[in-house]
Design a binder for these strands. Structure first.
Lengths: 238, 238
DNA sequence: CATGCGAAAGTGGTCTGACCACTACACGCT
DNA sequence: AGCGTGTAGTGGTCAGACCACTTTCGCATG
């Protein structure tokens, strides 16, 4: 698919590439069933073990799905399928990498929020509004639900751009654990009100269908989190 | 590690979880070597085949790295390691999803190019310049090397932002196959000169260390490709 | 004594063929 | 016609063998 390097390539690797090629060429489409492992291994001239490892690879990548006793199928190949493995990043990231992740979000979220302001349907806005209410529900003590609502708030916004790929990537860059840290940190500093303001400002821009305002509001918000993290990391020794 | 669901779980899955746990518990750290496949399979009470599939899974996820004849090692667990799987997206995407991918690139690349204009080192700029020359090497007949140089050109730019996470995500959104289609399409329409202009404009902005110009040049470029794809998809039936 | 080379041990990679667990489907029974 | 039930076929697991490669160590050589 990508590197036709002259090096000797492993049997399994070649099998993976051939299956990928079958999908890329349209010989098998999303949702369709592949030949059996035994057939494929015979067809490719490899052992069933190697064939299985190739299938295992593509299963892990979210391209194939093996159903015990029924066969191997190509997934819908939706971005969400292929980016599922992606979500570990935000979870395992620490320190500098976390800053890098936020920097990427600072590039994506303003643009995405602006797009959402232009494209969101009425139902989308209702959903976003409901999550905003849920976030503000409690008094001054952010609980687990606040964090979840926060996560959902941003995800709902990005989802309402209608770009599933964008949504999947954004979700991979967000994590519940990190959000919880942000809220905890802001509560200690008595700054949860600032976060609420940010969210309200974003929501208002969306409802007003004002992309520029939405972009600005999102930028302010991500920047606030980024600076907090910066300070937090510096404080506890980078 | 995550889901202790009551369902019967496959042998291989359990093996995957046990290795993950070994890493999470710190029993093996980044860069360290695991016991041999034979030892692990004996220790976990599974066959070597299943053990191999478990290792294959974690290798695919970028957590482990198998060196033929030498052993299995834990990777450095850097973002680039974990996001390698990401590249499948661009490889297997078609039609609408491809448009979505480009839309995400339109958000990332201008920002990344602007950042690169501010941050790139002299060596970074040399590397980018060399790739630009290589891209323009041939006369009017873009060959495989042109496509490769194109890919490298953009990757080098993003890499020179110093944000490895950003670079890894960007690389995942690019693909040799897609780039080849773009060049082929533009050659048919006699528009390869436009692509060259775009690249030169971007390079100039970087050398001039002008973030605004860089952002604009990158936007123009991605937009051109996006519009071409739009037309191409419409032409050959969505 | 230092050095280079080659044999050997140990590792991941591949193959074979068998059996198990599960699903789907068609057949026969009610 | 409806419903179990058996059976063929699928992916999942196992065992043991051999191949390809890397590393290491001892031996011969300078």
């Amino acid at each position: 698919m990508s590197d036709p390097d002259g090096e000797r390539t492993s049997v399994t690797r070649r099998a993976v590439d051939r299956i990928k090629a079958m999908i890329a060429d349209g010989r098998v489409g999303p949702g369709e069933r592949l030949p059996t492992e035994r057939d494929l291994s015979a067809q490719f001239g490899v052992s069933r073990s190697s064939m299985r490892e190739a299938i295992r690879t593509l299963t892990t990548l979210g391209v194939l799905e093996a159903r015990h006793g029924a066969g191997v199928y190509v997934t819908a190949l939706r971005p969400a399928d292929l980016l599922e493995t992606f979500s570990v990043l935000a979870e395992v990231s620490q320190g500098r990498t976390l800053l890098e992740v936020l920097q990427v979000r600072r590039m994506l979220e303003p643009a995405a929020t602006a797009l959402a302001a232009a494209r969101a349907s009425a139902e989308d806005l209702d959903r976003v509004g409901a999550l905003l209410d849920r976030m503000e529900g409690g008094p001054d003590t952010p609980c687990a639900d606040t964090v979840t609502a926060d996560l959902g708030f941003h995800q709902a916004i990005v989802a309402s751009t209608g770009n599933a790929t964008l949504a999947a990537i954004h979700d991979g860059l967000s994590s519940h654990t990190f959000n919880a840290r942000v809220w905890a940190g802001h509560r200690e500093a008595g700054l949860t009100a600032k976060l609420r303001e940010d969210h309200e400002r974003i929501h208002e821009a969306l409802v007003a269908r004002d992309p520029d305002a939405a972009r600005a509001a999102a930028t302010v918000h991500v920047l606030r989190v980024e600076r907090w993290l910066s300070a937090d990391l510096a404080g506890s020794g980078d």
